[in-house]
């Protein structure tokens, strides 16, 4: 029960990796704000599935690109909870396309959600975490930032941006005992990776992943909640790859 008495905000919390993070946090006693772009009923249904866990989930509908909404939501939670211990920025999208065919909207959407959203929520929690001299932020990066695929200039740029933001903010907030880290998932079985998995074929993918399996959202959630917890009390500014060894390369 690493999160008993602690509070957390998880963006993109209704689906995929975000949802697995919420499940892990609430299983270990946290009060969690599950923030997602999808309809509130969808988030509520996801929360209901975890109702037997010892923690508590409060779902919110929000577009992470909306900075005012991020501030309003975080301030509301801070007034209510008097502390924000953990932020996990998991909201993310893909809008793949080759550069020559990519529309500006595809670029703006991905940068806006993946990087802009991460900025907005980091910005909003900075003051409460600084005031409390305590906090842990975990951003969702991707191995795609350093080992990019074709057709993902927007995604790779957004996740590269997340890495830079993570390291820089870690330095800024370290003197306030606020840690900032990222997890960089490889091939994980979520809705977002379904197209790539379908295109390449799972059998082929497993051949190039040293651990010989596609990762599960829970694999990433375990790493993310490790970084979020006091178990990682001396870890800041790190990008932890959770990819079954995929990025090791070689044979």
């Amino acid at each position: 029960m690493r999160f008993e008495g602690k509070t957390a905000i998880v963006t993109g919390g209704s689906n995929g990796i975000g949802r697995a993070c919420v499940a892990r946090l609430v299983a270990e006693g946290a009060r969690v704000a599950m923030v997602d772009f999808c309809d509130l009923e969808v988030s509520q249904a996801a929360a209901d599935e975890m109702k037997d866990a010892p923690g508590e989930i409060v779902p919110f509908q929000a577009d992470v690109r909306d900075a005012d909404r991020a501030t309003e939501l975080v301030n509301q939670l801070f007034d209510q909870w008097e502390r924000i211990d953990v932020l996990i920025n998991s909201a993310g999208i893909v809008r793949d396309g080759l550069m020559a065919a990519m529309t500006q909207q595809q670029w703006l959407d991905v940068i806006g959600v993946n990087l802009g959203g991460t900025y907005n929520y980091c910005h909003a929690v900075t003051q409460p975490m600084m005031m409390n001299r305590s906090g842990s932020i975990v951003n969702l990066s991707s191995t795609g930032a350093e080992f990019p695929s074709r057709g993902q200039v927007n995604y790779a740029a957004s996740k590269g941006g997340v890495n830079g933001l993570t390291r820089s903010l870690a330095k800024e907030l370290a003197s306030r005992n606020v840690r900032v880290n990222a997890v960089a998932p490889g091939m994980i079985e979520t809705g977002m990776s379904a197209a790539v998995r379908g295109m390449v074929g799972e059998k082929e993918l497993k051949k190039i992943i040293p651990l010989r399996r596609i990762g599960q959202p829970e694999d990433v959630a375990q790493a993310a909640t490790f970084l979020a917890s006091d178990d990682a009390s001396y870890v800041t500014g790190q990008i932890l790859r959770v990819d079954g060894g995929l990025s090791l390369g070689g044979y």
């Binding site: 003051q127 600084m130 005031m131 800024e172 907030l173 003197s175 306030r176």
Partner: peptide
């Protein structure tokens, strides 16, 4: 005080 301290001080004065 360092630069980030001025922000910290401002937060505390506001409150």
């Amino acid at each position: 005080a360092e630069s980030i301290d001025f922000l910290d001080i401002v937060f505390r004065l506001e409150k």
